[in-house]
Design a protein around this nucleic acid. Structure first.
Lengths: 240, 240
DNA sequence: TCAGATACCAATTTGCATTTGGTCTATAAT
DNA sequence: ATTATAGACCAAATGCAAATTGGTATCTGA
């Protein structure tokens, strides 16, 4: 450990003064709402210091967490916005089937409730179409396709693009999460498959503008799915 | 009656033939990996038919679910992929403050309900901390920081990483959406600001494991925020 | 009456120039 | 010798105009 590293830090006074000068400038200048401060080239000119020196001062503020920077974007006051967790793969890696199921049970009933209030006749027509097609499905894969589309149509019926986006994210994670794994069985869902009745109850409630009924029907449906899923995992655990 | 001699007329035979011709073309031409087929203008020229007629044939294929189309993008084979916009910026561009508020009212009460079931003592301690800090805030910016952290702590308390991820997405969109715009007023929130009472009601309910109460308190809080937001927009509209 | 051609529209993509933080180098200063 | 300065360059990000593309309306002609 060489002590001269401290002395070569040449004049702590100088450094501190530039940081102080910068702090003062930032305190008195009113920044735009997004907290962005001027580009380094402008700021250094405005402060009458070199860009190098300014950057050293900015390094200090960044280390203190006062500012955050990003190439091409700029330098901003405040703390860096949390990493957009919107990465499906990352979410899926951190999650698991049970968690996905719980999240669905939290989110989707409320989406159904909202849809019961905002759904257009066209939405309901499409829901009915999904119902019919899912009954006619020749394979589980086809059935799953129409099931997914029904749930998404309900999310669309909220007429809220953000809710639809959140639903899509949830759905993408659901598909990405590694389950036991979906069988591509040639057999088709039994005509008395529980989802048929449950799906119909949901669409009926939405059609009748029964918000509470829609939420309950969706919750009931997802809880049944959850139960079947847990049963399946148990059986797989016993067999495996 | 000789049907086959009158091929110039617009009978079902002609229409069907264009569809067949199109099918044959698509079968023998190798499309790029994304399944995109040539623009309508090119394709109609290549097939020696008018764009109108081609579009009618494409309409048939689309109804059959063989292809999907999107303005500005093109026409593609296969089923339409769900636009998985996990992209915050894209979501924000398509959304607006009112929509964000509605989405919060749909999602967050249920998150609070789940949190009331799963919150740990440590979670509740942190919520109380956020409450206290928000009361002590010197500026709206500081207050907003603690408010955001409180809501996120509640989402964390669900112990569900996926729900937390969805909440973060919602929150990121909320920040990204351009409002009237947040004032950087030097004044601090009044000591009797409505959010203080409402936040406390939420945390109280969570602490008492009162799931319905937590959901109601959160809904009540967000509805108040929504009302204030609308009032503000109205005033801004009148002034501007 | 209806297919065909044309023009226009809005959503989207593409390409290019600009901006911006990050980094390196040469020069001058001390 | 060290350091500060200025300048140049890079990659990421942005902004903008032009081109592309599916969708739609209008006019024409048979």
């Amino acid at each position: 450990m060489r002590m001269d590293s401290l002395t070569t830090d040449a004049d702590p006074h100088t450094q501190k003064s530039t940081v102080t000068q910068l702090r003062a400038f930032l305190a008195q200048s009113d920044l735009p709402d997004d907290g962005r401060l001027p580009p380094e080239r402008e700021l250094s000119a405005a402060l009458g210091i070199s860009r190098t020196e300014l950057r050293k001062a900015l390094d200090v503020l960044e280390a203190e967490g006062q500012i955050w920077r990003h190439v091409g974007k700029g330098t901003f006051m405040g703390s860096r916005p949390l990493d957009t967790f919107a990465d499906i793969a990352a979410l899926a890696r951190r999650s698991n089937p049970a968690e996905v199921m719980r999240a669905r049970i939290v989110i989707e009933p409320e989406i159904a409730r909202a849809a019961a209030f905002t759904a257009t006749p066209a939405d309901i027509t499409e829901m009915r179409l999904c119902l019919a097609r899912s009954r006619q499905a020749d394979s589980w894969r086809q059935y799953e396709g129409w099931d997914t589309r029904l749930h998404r149509t309900i999310a669309e019926a909220t007429q809220n693009g953000l809710l639809l986006g959140l639903f899509d994210t949830l759905n993408a994670v659901r598909r990405a999460v590694t389950w036991g794994r979906l069988r591509a069985l040639p057999v088709r869902p039994a005509p008395d498959h529980h989802s048929f009745r449950e799906h119909e109850a949901i669409v009926d409630a939405i059609e009748h503008r029964d918000m509470a009924g829609a939420a309950n029907a969706m919750r009931n449906h997802l809880r049944t799915v959850e139960r079947k899923l847990l049963d399946k995992q148990l059986r797989a655990a016993e067999e495996g």
